[in-house]
Amino acid sequence: MHAVKVRFAAIVVVGLALVGMLSWVAGSWPADQTRATVDHCYVTHDRLEAMRSRCVGNWTRGGRGRQGPIHGVDVQESWKVIDDEPNSAYEWEVAIPASARQPRVLAGTRQAWTLSPRALPWVLVPAGLVALLAALAWLITSTVKASRSAHGVPAESSATPA
């Protein structure tokens, strides 16, 4: 019977983790915002002339303003360069169009990721949700089996005579 109680507690913990992760993804923690404000974006070109970009901005997490890099902003070649002179990192700042200024993000305290295929950690969120759902399903199934065996009910009953 003790094993059943432990499994019930595990179900509650995994369920709460799942609900917490879903609400974090949705930005529905108290005083959180689902969008960030992109303040600056910079572009540079590598030796093969492929454009690289870096954006920084601000967002709210837990009621506190945060700022830092925002990964996955889809900076376009068509964005206008603000200054013809590059900065010390040999990057040019570009003007951010209004349509790209406030993307939906997953945000922590130091950095944020847009909800786009360009932002690598976004791939980890569905994987984490699937893992939590699988753990929850396994815990429920094993708890039901353990509960039945604790009460003397066979785990599998045969409905047809042998």
Rank of each mutant, 00 (worst) to 15 (best):
S53A: 12
E93A: 00
V12I: 08
P69I: 07
L129I: 07
Q76E: 13
W24D: 03
L129E: 00
E85K: 13
G108E: 10
V38A: 04
A159S: 14
V4D: 06
W29T: 04
N87E: 09
L120R: 15
Q67N: 15
V125D: 00
P103H: 00
L136T: 01
V25W: 13
S23A: 13
I11E: 04
I82L: 01
G108P: 07
D84P: 06
P117V: 09
E77M: 10
H2T: 15
S149P: 12
M1T: 15
H45M: 11
L22T: 08
T143F: 08
Q33R: 05
S158M: 13
P30I: 01
D46V: 04
V75W: 05
S142M: 11
M51E: 14
Y42G: 09
C41Y: 02
S53D: 13
G27N: 01
D83T: 02
P161T: 06
G63R: 02
Q111S: 13
Q67L: 08
P86T: 02
R52E: 14
A131D: 00
K80A: 00
S116L: 01
C55I: 12
E93S: 04
T141K: 15
M51L: 09
S116I: 10
P69T: 07
I11Q: 01
W113D: 00
L22M: 15
D74I: 04
V105N: 00
R110A: 12
P69V: 10
P69Y: 06
L139R: 03
T44W: 07
R54T: 15
A137P: 06
G152M: 06
L16K: 05
A98M: 11
V153D: 14
L133M: 08
A98W: 07
G108M: 11
T44P: 08
L133C: 03
H151E: 15
A150S: 14
A17Y: 07
S147M: 12
A89H: 14
Q67I: 10
Q102W: 00
V94S: 03
Q76C: 07
A155G: 13
A162M: 12
G57T: 08
